[in-house]
Design a protein around this nucleic acid. Structure first.
Lengths: 145, 145
DNA sequence: TTAACTGCAAATCCTTTGCACGCTG
DNA sequence: CAGCGTGCAAAGGATTTGCAGTTAA
C-alpha cells in the first residue's frame, strides 16, 4: 500500500495530514518487514525529526481503526504492524531470530469457519501463529561432509 | 488435573509446597474456566488469606516451566491460565462475553505441520484463536413469532 | 481562525523484582 | 537451620492520556 493510498484513507475519514503523519505513512508504506511502534518511530524520525512516539502510536491506532493497518500481537513482544493491502494471511514466527513469515492456507481458513459454525459462532477475526525453529537441513541421513 | 498431581509435579522438581502454593494449586485444579492471575489471587485468598499476587505470579511461572499449566495470552487482556492435563486444543473467544470455548481439529493440526515443513520449519508450539460472536439463531428465513 | 494535532511527562495496566523476614524440609 | 519462599513496595515495559502550545485546512 503506497503512502499516497494511506493518506487518502485518512483524508477521506476527515483526518489531517500533518508533517509527522506524512512521515509515518511513508515509512509504513515502504516497510516490508513487520516493525513495532518503536522501530517505526526511529525510522520516521530520520525523515521528520519532530515525530514523537506518542504520535506514532496515535497514528497507528487511527490507521487500525480505518482498517488500513493491522496490529499483530505476538507472544510477549510489543505489537508489530503491517499495511492491510495484502490478502489475508497468517504468520510463522522464527523463535530464534524473531523473523515473521507470511503464509496462507485456504483449507485451514475453511476448516476454521466450519468449526466456528459448529460451535454456533460467526468468526469476526482469527489468529493463527506458528512458532518454530528452522529445520536442521541434513536430517534425513544425507549428513554433510 | 488434581491439586495432588500438581503438587507432585512441583515436589518432584524440588519445589517446596507452602501453604500459599497449596491454596493456589487447589484453586487451579478446580477451575474449569480460564482465570487470570488476579482472579486466581482472589479465589486463593479465600482459602488462604496470606497469599499475595506476587506469589500467584511466581507460582504460575513455575508451573508453566514444569509444563503443567498453560499461559493463554489473548488479545489485549491479561494472561489466563489452564492446567495442562487435557490433550491439546485451541480456543474460540466470544467477543461479547469473553467466554472461552475449547475445540480441537486434527485436520488443522496436520495442515499446520505441513505448512511449517514447507517453509522449512519445525513447529515448537502454535496458537490458533477464533474471535467471534454467537450466531443469530433465526437467520435462515425461519424468523420467530 | 479554530478544531485537530503535537510533544512531553505523567499515568495505566499487567507483570516482575529487590529486599528483609519467615517457614519448609 | 539452611535456603527457598514470602509480602510488600517499587521497578519494568508497552501503551495511553492530560495538558498547553502548534498548525493544517
Amino acid at each position: 500500500m503506497s503512502a499516497r493510498e494511506l493518506e487518502h484513507a485518512l483524508r477521506d475519514a476527515g483526518v489531517r495530514i500533518t508533517r509527522q503523519r506524512s512521515a509515518i505513512l511513508r515509512i509504513l508504506a515502504e516497510a516490508d518487514d513487520h516493525p513495532d511502534a518503536n522501530e517505526l518511530y526511529s525510522r520516521a524520525s530520520a525523515l521528520e525529526p519532530t515525530v514523537s512516539l506518542s504520535t506514532v502510536y496515535r497514528t497507528l491506532s487511527i490507521l487500525e481503526d480505518k482498517g488500513v493497518v493491522h496490529r499483530l500481537t505476538f507472544e510477549g513482544a510489543p505489537a508489530r504492524f503491517e499495511t492491510a493491502d495484502t490478502p489475508h494471511h497468517d504468520h510463522m514466527i522464527d523463535l530464534e531470530t524473531g523473523d515473521v513469515i507470511e503464509f496462507r492456507s485456504d483449507k485451514i481458513e475453511k476448516l476454521q469457519a466450519e468449526i466456528a459454525a459448529e460451535l454456533g459462532y460467526d468468526i469476526v477475526y482469527h489468529k493463527l501463529e506458528l512458532y518454530g525453529r528452522r529445520k536442521a537441513r541434513n536430517q534425513a541421513g544425507r549428513l554433510g561432509a
